[in-house]
């Protein structure tokens, strides 16, 4: 806000067509949010707001606009707001996405944009769910390096090839978009879920780690990898583009070859 009095920046080197006028297009959207406020009602309901948004805005900006200007009681999680922390996974137009990575202009703005909490976890308020069952599964696969050899005086070396082996699964931000998109998890919440398996994969295939067998044993549980039906919902849902179903299949193969 203080920059308005400063000298104008030099003209951009990018030539914008006249039609944009150098500005940003605005449009009206209808935001339809699943509300649940246990203090007032045990029933969830839908609330709708029609707001004017800009072409560069994301769903998170629309939620902010509602919370800051229209209805302060709207509750949702967000921390970094830039797709790194994994706080704002929600069901947008029926698909699990991060609100901070979903541009409004990429959605169908002629229809109301529906926003719901992620499925399969207990809703606490509005878009906030209890993540504890999700993190419980995460803890069970021991998401930390366990090395049997004594710690070297410097770092533990790893070849680029060995590092590449589990590179994809290091990208997980624990947003729960995958686990809460999985129909097997929806049924009873007993399945470990894609996120826990992805994070186990990250250590199982790490050449520096020595507890791969223990993690494979954990995931050989009847609620472990064998409950995966390869519906690929998790791969579709992952905002980081991790090939989740492939990682689960690799863990299955690892359990099989270990048993053989």
């Amino acid at each position: 806000m203080s920059t308005t009095t400063e000298a104008a920046e030099p003209a951009s080197t990018v030539d914008l067509p006249e039609s944009t006028g150098g500005g940003i297009t605005t449009f009206d959207i209808t935001l339809k949010v699943r509300r649940y406020i246990p203090e007032f009602s045990d029933e969830a309901r839908w609330d709708e707001w029609t707001i004017t948004m800009q072409g560069t805005d994301r769903v998170l900006d629309a939620l902010h606009k509602v919370k800051w200007e229209l209805d302060g009681s709207l509750s949702f999680r967000r921390s970094c707001a830039h797709g790194v922390c994994g706080s704002d996974a929600m069901r947008i137009n029926g698909r699990n996405r991060l609100a901070c990575k979903t541009l409004l202009k990429d959605l169908d703005t002629s229809e109301p944009i529906t926003v719901e909490p992620i499925k399969g976890l207990p809703v606490e308020k509005d878009l906030i769910v209890d993540m504890e069952p999700f993190f419980q599964s995460y803890r069970e696969i021991m998401p930390f390096m366990i090395a049997n050899s004594p710690a070297p005086s410097a770092e533990r070396y790893q070849s680029p090839e060995d590092r590449e082996r589990f590179d994809d699964t290091t990208k997980c931000i624990l947003c729960a978009a995958c686990t809460s998109s999985c129909p097997v998890f929806w049924t009873d919440g007993q399945y470990f879920g894609p996120a826990a398996i992805v994070n186990a994969h990250r250590f199982i295939f790490d050449s520096r780690d020595d507890a791969g067998d223990m993690r494979l044993e954990v995931l050989n549980d009847k609620e472990g990898v064998w409950r995966c039906r390869t519906t690929f919902n998790c791969t579709d849902a992952c905002p980081r583009g991790i090939e989740v179903t492939k990682a689960i299949q690799e863990v299955k193969t690892a359990i099989l070859t270990r048993a053989a």
Binding site: N220, D221, W226, I255, L256
Partner: peptide, 11 residues
């Protein structure tokens, strides 16, 4: 734990 029954069933 169900041992390796689920794995056997999968195979």
């Amino acid at each position: 734990s169900s041992g390796s029954f689920e794995m056997a069933a999968w195979v």
